[in-house]
Design a binder for these strands. Sequence first.
DNA 1: CGAAAGGTTGACCAAGATCAAAGTGAGTGG
DNA 2: CCACTCACTTTGATCTTGGTCAACCTTTCG
Lengths: 234, 234
Amino acid sequence: MPGPQLPDDVFLGAFANAPARELAPGQVLIAAGAPADEVFNILSGMLMMSRTGSDGRRQVLSFLFRDNFIGLTTADRYYFTVQAVTPALVACIPRADFEARLARVPEAERAFLNMTFRVLEDLLDTIYSLGQRTALERLAVFLVFLRHARRLADGPADDGDPASNEVSLPMTREDIADYVGLQKETVSRSFGQLERRGLIRRLDSHRIRILDLPRLRELAGVVDFAASARLPPR
Amino acid sequence: MPGPQLPDDVFLGAFANAPARELAPGQVLIAAGAPADEVFNILSGMLMMSRTGSDGRRQVLSFLFRDNFIGLTTADRYYFTVQAVTPALVACIPRADFEARLARVPEAERAFLNMTFRVLEDLLDTIYSLGQRTALERLAVFLVFLRHARRLADGPADDGDPASNEVSLPMTREDIADYVGLQKETVSRSFGQLERRGLIRRLDSHRIRILDLPRLRELAGVVDFAASARLPPR
DNA sequence: CGAAAGGTTGACCAAGATCAAAGTGAGTGG
DNA sequence: CCACTCACTTTGATCTTGGTCAACCTTTCG
């Protein structure tokens, strides 16, 4: 039962009666290089933020969910791309309005700063993963993260419900690969290995069930996450 | 000739007459797990921020220089370690004082937010590197970054001066390895390869000279950096 | 001067990438 | 409604990059 706006999300008030934009899967919300003059808040759906180098290599920087803020940049042009993974609804306001609001409402600015810090800490986790973890571990991290993000966005499901351990993967294997710094074939094989080890079951190619969450978490090394310091104990 | 405090560094004013702490190489400023009740600003020297997983794997998250701020966290305990690489001087103030100042001085908070965003964008560059680039490319990125950071911290040297293309590497090969997500042997070999290709010359194990900056930059793919949008054109 | 830590180099190994082929499924047009 | 197509996924075979293990070298420091 999500109550009134959480204190840390005060800045989202800026989107109170902002116009919403509807996005179809794959549709681009922000194209790299476009002038950065709007900011967004996700109302529903999953989006994906990525950067593609001049030689075509692409890194997916993050997957985004409800109440995630988009439009972060110090430059005057976006240097990344944001596109929908599932059908999505996004509230848009001019960047100038948003900044004016931050300047006018100190609590909003403070809340925004806090949010930015949380994002930053999540990025440090990602860096640790990419730098130190193996393919299998990165996949485990990814699944644990996705499950967590979904529960934040959709509200925590009843843990008794077996569906609470189902994770939907609306993105392609290649999207996943570019997120965890692997090739799509390796992602496929690693899912196979997680299945053979009895940690997950592949229901279909876009849906898996976590069979052994504790062992998956252990493999992911969740204990070592900065972000998990923000999770409820146990 | 660094003039008066740059606008974006207004928040550093908080350190105006803060006590300084002197650090010897290797000395720990922040130990992971310690209560996060101080924040720091580097006056001189090079520090290093890292995280070590429960299984001993370590990721160096960043190297830090003059005017870099340290103490970033939303939690009440640090989840990373910061230690000196070279002898260093660090200004310290209680976190509460710093936060009080941010709350009191809107421009300081705004400047701090901007700084945080720049850090965040640099982390996105790092993620791209770790996820997509090869060993050799990561080393190239590292060298270009170190040269740049030095010039920011020490003031840009005269470009005619050959010393302007010397880069000192006070950290160990293992520190570098843990920063770029490789093993120390691979770092050694990659330096060898950069030398054989004529891009750098190893003067001694803690000092290299860049012989061909344009080609090194090209290998590093600097064009694809978010951070380079903040650099002077050309 | 000797020990210890850090660095380089070589030989070998393995995780993951690449190349190739075949299976699956959703959407489209007949 | 069915069949075809095309995109995505999986799996297999092979190759390559970077990791591991080990020896040797260099520098620093006690």
